[in-house]
Design a protein around this nucleic acid. Structure first.
Lengths: 367, 367
DNA sequence: CCAGAGAATGAATCCTTTG
DNA sequence: GCAAAGGATTCATTCTCTG
């Protein structure tokens, strides 16, 4: 396995590695503010054996201890708040977290996230196309799980690859409900006995969508409940760096083997649609400076109203003057206006959007 | 408005009434253990900041009402725990509750439910077929809301009409994700100015599924945040008793008028499926033979397209003819279609699914 | 009357850079 | 840190208007 260790302050950040131990202790040993994204699939309420600590750090045995429902929630909350605190410390200021769960635990997790200062961006429903039916007919088929996507704090500039997800969704905006099959067939890892290696292995398609949507190539993705390494496998495939933490030897072993078999996609395949926001800014005045538009030339809006271009790149219409955006907004009596897509100029009797000229300048900037 | 008052211990239980006032105080004035089902649509605590405009510069009419404003999560939690406590006191031992919310509040609600001793049965996702998009492209389309269904306590014998929901779902187990359109068009109530009467009116289809699935005719259904009375309207239609609590005079007025126009279905139509195997097959033509539908009468599909009923029980639309299933499939350009749940007919200006008539025939066959 | 175009609208935690 | 300016961004459905 490729291991890169990055110095961050006093501590070191081991990337593309599976770390052994209790996730809270291991997270606290890593450098603060070093992680771009955390994906966490924490244990549910009654699968906590060996995961729980009382406030005095003694271990709780969820099976042997006779606890009532309230104690159970109380201890689960302590556990949740503890690992979320360690996770939040690790995140870069613009980092984000995804946590997946079901109705047994997701409400505890969501409340703890909000109380810890995370800022929820969306809750996302993984709608299973092939869930296990409710055999006894006493409830609805439990056909989904819930993921919470949150930034480290309110106002943070989280990563969101809007265009890439839109592309994944046949050209329309990605919604908060994702229909994906459960992990089965060849993708489902088996142990030496042919039994499933992990009880809750997530499908790679789910992680694919999460990582394409909320990370960039080269980002560092941490999974504190690594299991059989689905997060790492998809991260590696997508050219992201992963850090896995897993306490169970058996899972680490399966994950290590799995990760050794993953070959990253080449960089061309990783390219996604570029957002217009990511493109360099062009001042309208440059069009005049470069002679693409002449001072004195008239621009026309969709209503057929005209405005004259001045040498400094400002516009003058019958009643308004200012930038292409300001004059457009004034004529539309609107709070704002994108002048680039609003105005047209005339060439050989044809009306042409001025945005064409901006694209021309941008393409020259690349040369 | 029909008012029935039922003596329960020392206090009286006013049914099929809209009660005025703060929901906690009013709930505490009602007799303990008297309610079968509570449906609650509490404030979501949206915490919206500035204005939002669509790309066409039109302004989004946001939920900025005073009743949705809370100063902090702590205050919101206090409110939530207080009304849930009052609600739980009102429930019969085998009673249940539904609460609907979004990611802003649903995690607080779920945690409070669990802490109060409720036992979560399912979380149900309402997947909106036509949500408002994310206009700035900064997040996923918020395309769903979450409902939590919980019994009063663990081990309670809650009502669940498994077969009825299965029938509503074309013969397969009802899942925890429900695809339904938002409330719009004629169903959306308007005030005297032609504006929406309530900012967050829920669709009747949602309540229909909730009440068919988790109540029986004659049950008492309480909605502590009654608004314009969707819960009451569907409860009355389905032969359940309702109690609404609403603070705002304007909403109570709209709700009262609405409820006055609802005419309950007759008892035969309310008989829900007992067991699928026990159900005799009913040919659509029997509805015509028995005069439940007249030859020449028009059926309407969800798109508003019409088809005419013929004497032999076949349908004719503008372009297609055949069975209710065939014409439905052709109009949907789908391989198959359950005509029973697809077509509706008109009575007294209301659209009613033809499946109601099938159930009526079946109930007569049992006699 | 119908068909087609255009406008309206919905529980929304909805921007980024420069000066 | 704040104010000002640049400029990027939407889907399904229903209602209304026009021809």
């Amino acid at each position: 396995m490729a291991v890169t260790t990055v110095a961050q302050g006093a501590k070191m950040l081991p990337t593309n590695e599976i770390l052994s131990g209790d996730c809270i202790e291991v997270m606290n040993s890593l450098p603060e503010g070093s992680i771009d994204l955390i994906f966490a699939d924490p244990p549910y309420n009654l699968q906590l054996k060996g995961e729980l600590h009382r406030p005095d750090n003694s271990r709780v045995d969820a099976v042997d201890d006779a606890w009532d429902q309230f104690d159970s929630f109380k201890i689960y909350d302590q556990f949740t708040r503890a690992w979320l605190k360690a996770a939040r410390r690790l995140l870069k200021p613009n980092g984000a977290i995804w946590v997946i769960g079901s109705y047994h635990n997701i409400f505890r997790v969501g409340t703890a996230l909000q109380d810890a200062g995370f800022w929820i961006l969306n809750d996302v429903v993984w709608r299973k196309s092939n869930p296990m039916p409710n055999f006894r007919g006493k409830r609805l088929t439990n056909a989904h799980e819930t993921m919470i996507w949150a930034s480290k704090s309110e106002g943070a500039k989280y990563t969101f690859n809007y265009e890439a997800l839109k592309e994944l969704n046949e050209g329309v905006q990605m919604r908060s409900d994702w229909v994906l099959p459960i992990c089965s067939g060849h993708e489902r890892l088996k142990d030496d006995n042919g039994d499933k290696a992990h009880p809750t292995q997530k499908p790679e398609s789910l992680l694919h969508r999460v990582l394409v949507g909320s990370t960039n190539p080269g980002d560092i993705v941490l999974d504190p409940f690594f299991g059989t390494g689905t997060t790492g496998a998809v991260a590696k495939l997508l050219g992201r760096n992963y850090i896995g933490i897993e306490r169970e030897e058996a899972y680490r072993k399966v994950a290590a083997k799995r990760l050794g078999q993953v070959r990253p996609l080449d960089s061309a395949a990783l390219q996604t649609t570029v957002s217009k926001r990511a493109q360099p800014r062009v001042a309208f005045g440059q069009l005049v400076e470069r002679g693409l538009l002449r001072p004195g030339e008239m621009l026309v809006n969709p209503r057929g109203q005209a405005a004259k271009v001045r040498v400094d790149g400002s516009l003058v219409s019958a009643e308004h003057r200012g930038s292409i955006h300001q004059v457009g907004a004034a004529l539309e009596n609107a709070p704002s206006c994108n002048g680039w897509t609003y105005w047209q100029f005339k060439r050989d009797g044809q009306l042409i959007p001025i945005d064409i000229l901006r694209q021309q300048i941008r393409s020259e900037m690349h040369d």
